[in-house]
């Protein structure tokens, strides 16, 4: 059962291992640690908090970048080398190929989230770091799904990466945009203000709540409640289903 998917997942994980992704991640941890140490040298108080905040922000951004780069280049390279066609010519459904690919990228995402959480446990309580790490894994899962979708749809590294980065930045800043749109400068808002507000609210509805995930504050002061955690887990699940369905629609309609 699902032998084909398991093989694809294993190949994806092997590719991650052989593309020295782990070494890049280790170097990223070292750089983030160094940057945090450097900035904390000038801090008078809250040294540990500053180290956690700077390390977590750098590692989160690096994790997203590494995973998106890996997923996109992996799929585009397979497509360019006609390996995708070879896979799809096997007696297996296209959804099995997708399932294998997303499972492999999930393995990479979880490994990155776990690896990037461990150094943070030096400065913050382990339980709170574990919650942050789990949330980071969820965030990376969404990025993996989006990266695969963009790579399948756009077929070019540059455009797929730009689209994924744009999506991530938009998802993380959409709440701030909603606040900006809700408070126009003019005393009497015009129809353009109302239209802008409506458009931004509509975009926000379609975006995952990434700005509520993987917050540094969870490690410093306020860990999330069980309700918050379950809400975020549900958000990850729903978005994986949504993007997975969109990718499958594109995968099935395409002639290879």
């Amino acid at each position: 059962m699902l032998i084909f998917s398991r093989t694809i997942a294993r190949i994806t994980l092997l590719e991650a291992l052989r593309s020295r992704l782990a070494w890049v991640a280790v170097i990223a941890i070292g750089v983030a640690f160094g940057a945090a140490q450097f900035l904390s040298q000038v801090a008078i108080i809250e040294v540990a908090q500053i180290q956690v905040a700077i390390m977590s922000a750098l590692l989160r951004a690096t994790g997203v970048f590494l995973l998106a780069a890996f997923c996109i280049t992996s799929l585009v390279r397979e497509a360019n080398d006609k390996i995708t066609e070879l896979f799809l010519s096997q007696p297996a459904a296209r959804w099995e190929y997708y399932l294998g690919k997303i499972a492999g990228c999930t393995g990479v995402a979880i490994s990155l989230a776990a690896g990037f959480s461990i150094p943070l446990a030096i400065f913050a309580p382990v339980a709170q770091v574990a919650v942050w790490g789990a949330s980071f894994a969820g965030e990376l899962l969404i990025i993996a799904a989006i990266s695969i979708f963009c790579a399948v749809s756009l077929t070019q590294v540059t455009s797929a990466f730009a689209a994924t980065a744009g999506f991530y930045l938009l998802a993380r800043s959409i709440s701030a945009m909603q606040i900006i749109a809700a408070t126009p400068l003019a005393l009497e808002p015009s129809w353009t203000d109302a239209a802008l507000k409506w458009i931004i609210n509509a975009i926000a509805l379609a975006m995952p709540a990434l700005d509520r995930m993987t917050l540094t504050d969870w490690m410093l002061d306020h860990p999330p409640s069980a309700t918050e955690i379950s809400g975020l887990a549900l958000q990850v699940l729903i978005y994986l289903l949504l993007i997975g369905a969109a990718t499958l629609v594109d995968l099935y309609r395409r002639n290879f």
Binding site: E46, A53, A57, R172, A176, L210, T214, T216, D217
Partner: peptide, 9 residues
């Protein structure tokens, strides 16, 4: 980008 604490620090 949704996580204001590092920016504040």
């Amino acid at each position: 980008f949704g996580d204001p604490v590092p920016l504040a620090k």
